[in-house]
Design a protein around this nucleic acid. Structure first.
Lengths: 152, 152
DNA sequence: TATGAAAGACCTAGACT
DNA sequence: AGTCTAGGTCTTTCATA
């Protein structure tokens, strides 16, 4: 994991799905060398995958809600988290410190779908004692990019 | 935006960065036809981009915090949101209904960096009257995938 | 780990349906 | 909108350093 790897990852983070040769040209190496590095990064799970970013408004799911899910028994956290993670409309599930509380990010079409999921997939779960829902009015940023260290 | 487009998007959502021909084979069409559809989807901004998903643990930013940022004057929401969005460690910024509150998702290396960003980038902002920070202990799901309608 | 060469796969524009 | 074709480009393996 050196300067060159970081350079490659920065390029891919700006725009995945560009040809290998273009990455190679940018970092000034042979395509085959770059290919091998990328494959190693994938094998080491430094690169976990490549995703499309779709426009949610085109698919009737432009409504975001964050739901704090209070769980009674801390020993249930793991299985509850996994079950929530299996719901298609759930994009994120995190366990929050200090309140025995899971936080879920939901993407739905409207209030009706939100209510349906709260009732059918969340509040009815074993060990769930309550929820608090935060509805998003507008979003200023949504990205999976992470800060990569400078490499000169 | 028909059955075929949805099929293509589903394939790309599972695994972007596969060759065009493979998409074409899967949907049973000529590569050039698929290429044209993908280009149109990009032009219409249905596809907004392609991203790498990197493993945060490899880059010293495996700590996630959600920060509720209370803003005094609702007229400041927009500019405050945009300013927060410009911080590298900020992955998401949403405006929450009902509390004149922005919610920020942060990815940092440790408590020290969290404190630094809270102090240098958030609490010191014009119009920010307070914050509440939720620290994540573990995550069960993080994805940008959205539900696509079935297409039979 | 890197390069360079070579074979095969893929991309993409254009003609045509 | 789709297929087919053909050239140019890209990928990927392998011998070599």
């Amino acid at each position: 994991m050196d300067k060159t790897d970081l350079e490659i990852l920065k390029i891919l983070q700006k725009k995945a799905r560009i040809p290998n040769v273009e990455v190679a040209r940018t970092v000034g190496m042979a395509p085959s060398a770059v290919l091998e590095r990328i494959k190693k990064l994938e094998a080491k799970q430094v690169i976990q995958g490549y995703e499309v970013r779709l426009n949610p408004e085109m698919f009737h799911c432009s409504m975001i809600a964050f739901v704090h899910v209070r769980v009674k028994d801390p020993s249930r956290i793991r299985e509850t988290g996994q079950e929530l993670a299996s719901v298609d409309q759930v994009q994120e599930v995190h366990y929050l410190a200090g309140e025995d509380c899971l936080m879920v990010k939901l993407r739905v079409s409207d209030n009706q779908e939100l209510e349906r999921i709260l009732r059918k997939n969340i509040t009815c779960m074993e060990g769930v004692t309550g929820t608090q829902t935060f509805i998003v009015l507008s979003s200023f940023k949504e990205s999976a990019k992470i800060m990569l260290p400078d490499s000169p």
